[in-house]
């Protein structure tokens, strides 16, 4: 008997010998790519930086994420310190990054750096995770984090709150831009995880009533510099 892979691929080739009728769609297969064909019809992400920033702010507010706009790194450090103080955070986890080093500097609590083979239980006990991101998507209010640039997989999902520190030049209009940026930035090897985070964790599983913090962070704060 042939192996399953050979078998399944043979079944597929056999099945596709009969062509499906071309659907009546206002888009062509392949060229221009479906994504390019669809892009102009998706929600607007803003033509100018200012427009994108406005849309981003609106989207984040609707998602119940908190956006803090600050002029510079020093102000970001102060904003984060104030946030930690107000929330009474005792220990926050973060990852090594030059921007975060400055922004975390004023924190009034312990800053625990995740490193190789960190203790999961210890991370679970942290009040917040502070990370950078790859970009922010205005169109959807999403932040893209990656296992390479945002401290691995768990830091942005396990602690009770997630703080993203980003700069205004990281804001892109739409998802297609974000994906293009990922492709350009990572060359041949993608990070093992890339995650678009759109608001704090949520569920509607009980009577379709919205509850935040189902498993991931109950709070999402975005500190945007510039």
């Amino acid at each position: 008997m042939a192996d399953a892979r050979t078998d399944i691929l043979a079944r597929i080739r056999e099945a596709l010998k009969v062509k499906a009728p071309r659907p009546h769609l206002r888009a062509e297969p392949g060229d221009p790519s479906p994504s390019k064909a669809g892009r102009p019809w998706l929600p607007d992400g803003g033509e100018t930086r200012e427009a994108s920033l406005t849309i981003l702010a609106e989207q984040l507010a609707k998602l119940k994420a908190v956006l803090l706009r600050v002029p510079d790194r020093a102000a970001a450090a102060k904003a984060l310190a104030d946030l930690a103080g107000a929330k009474g955070w005792k220990r926050v986890a973060s990852h090594s990054d030059s921007l975060l080093e400055e922004v975390n500097a004023a924190l009034p609590c312990e800053v625990w750096p995740v490193s190789r083979d960190f203790d999961k239980r210890r991370l679970e006990a942290c009040d917040a995770g502070v990370t950078t991101c790859e970009c922010l998507v205005a169109q959807l209010g999403s932040a893209l984090v990656s296992s390479r640039s945002s401290g691995g997989r768990a830091l942005s999902i396990l602690p009770h709150a997630h703080v993203i520190v980003a700069t205004a030049d990281q804001v892109v209009p739409d998802l297609a831009d974000a994906l293009a940026k990922v492709r350009a930035g990572n060359g041949g090897e993608m990070p093992s995880m890339l995650s678009f985070i759109t608001g704090p964790s949520r569920t509607g599983d009980i009577e379709r009533i919205l509850v935040l913090g189902a498993h991931g962070p109950k709070e999402l704060h975005v500190i945007l510099i510039g």
Partner: peptide, 8 residues
């Protein structure tokens, strides 16, 4: 607008 986590 987008599901909360879309992860690759």
């Amino acid at each position: 607008p987008m599901t909360c986590y879309n992860t690759f």
